[in-house]
């Protein structure tokens, strides 16, 4: 390898490629797929998104005649069939955190960074590999969930061509993909599994609740811009008053993920590993 071959100095004949973004992506894909915990957690997330809508649809349909008229009027069939998104969000976000903190917890990160001492390709590769995997699987699961859910709803169902339905189905997968990237970013920033999961749950699920105790004007001005509130606009067909429009809301959500990822890259580069 070295041009300045010194007599007696060891010369390897092993064929190797220089480390590249592409080779790091291959490595991260192997990392993701060679852990049993990835498969289990992903199956929980994708499975709940694909199947929970059917369960909700079935029971809604059966209890329809006993349901109060006000609730019947408020019923939104697309949301009902995608009801698994809350579980999926938690499973996928947690897996995103674990994909990184699992390396810190076990010391694997030292092997990873010794192989890729420039470090940043690891951040991009993890986000890309886990993001794309999540996108493909959750889009499939979202469509499956919609069709099973609508089938179970019987006469109360809507078609995919109905107003906003397609956007909501596709948007669910997009939302979960951004959650995946946020999970990866939090993993790099916080480095511990417990802390990373706490931060994820805090930001996505607890923060909107905390906002309810703040002054009304704050709620009105800032509330729509909270990560999960902004992001859910893309799949929520009955948005709360004052919510951002679907695509602006989703853009805001994406910005959070990008800021998180940049912060992750910054701290990974600076810290001792």
């Amino acid at each position: 390898m070295s041009a300045d071959a010194v007599p007696g100095r060891y010369v390897s004949r092993l064929a190797v490629d220089p480390v590249s973004q592409r080779s790091v992506i291959t490595s991260e894909w192997l990392k993701l797929t060679t852990l049993k915990s990835s498969w289990i957690t992903m199956a929980v997330g994708v499975g709940s998104l694909a199947l929970l809508g059917g369960v909700i649809g079935f029971f809604t349909n059966r209890a329809w005649d006993q349901t109060r008229p006000a609730r019947q009027a408020a019923f939104e069939p697309v949301a009902a069939s995608l009801g698994g998104v809350r579980f999926a969000e938690l499973a996928i976000g947690v897996l995103g955190v674990l994909f990184v903190t699992g390396e810190y917890g076990t010391g694997m990160i030292r092997s990873s960074l010794t192989a890729v001492p420039r470090r940043l390709p690891v951040v991009w590769a993890k986000a890309l590999v886990f993001g794309v995997t999540t996108l493909v699987l959750t889009e499939i699961a979202s469509f499956v969930g919609f069709f099973i859910g609508q089938a179970a709803l019987g006469t109360h169902s809507v078609a995919l061509s109905s107003d906003g339905a397609l956007r909501a189905v596709i948007g669910t997968g997009l939302y979960l993909t951004v959650v995946a990237v946020i999970g990866v970013a939090l993993g790099f920033i916080i480095r511990s599994t417990a802390g990373g999961i706490a931060a994820l749950v805090g930001i996505l699920l607890v923060l909107p609740g905390v906002f309810l105790i703040l002054p009304q004007s704050w709620q009105d001005d800032l509330g729509p811009y909270l990560p999960s509130t902004a992001g859910s606009a893309v799949y929520d067909l009955r948005p709360a008053p004052g919510s951002l429009d679907p695509w602006p809301g989703f853009t805001v959500f994406c910005l959070y993920a990008i800021v998180g990822l940049v912060a992750a890259a910054f701290v990974l580069n600076r810290r001792d590993a």
């Binding site: 390898m1 070295s2 390897s12 092993l14 190797v16 490629d17 220089p18 480390v19 990392k31 852990l35 699992g102 390396e103 076990t106 010391g107 694997m108 990160i109 030292r110 092997s111 010794t114 192989a115 890729v116 001492p117």
Partner: peptide
């Protein structure tokens, strides 16, 4: 290609 130039065994465990 760092692994081709340097092989390292750290004292602390570095395996998932």
């Amino acid at each position: 290609a760092p692994l081709h130039e340097v092989g390292a065994l750290l004292e602390a465990r570095s395996v998932h």
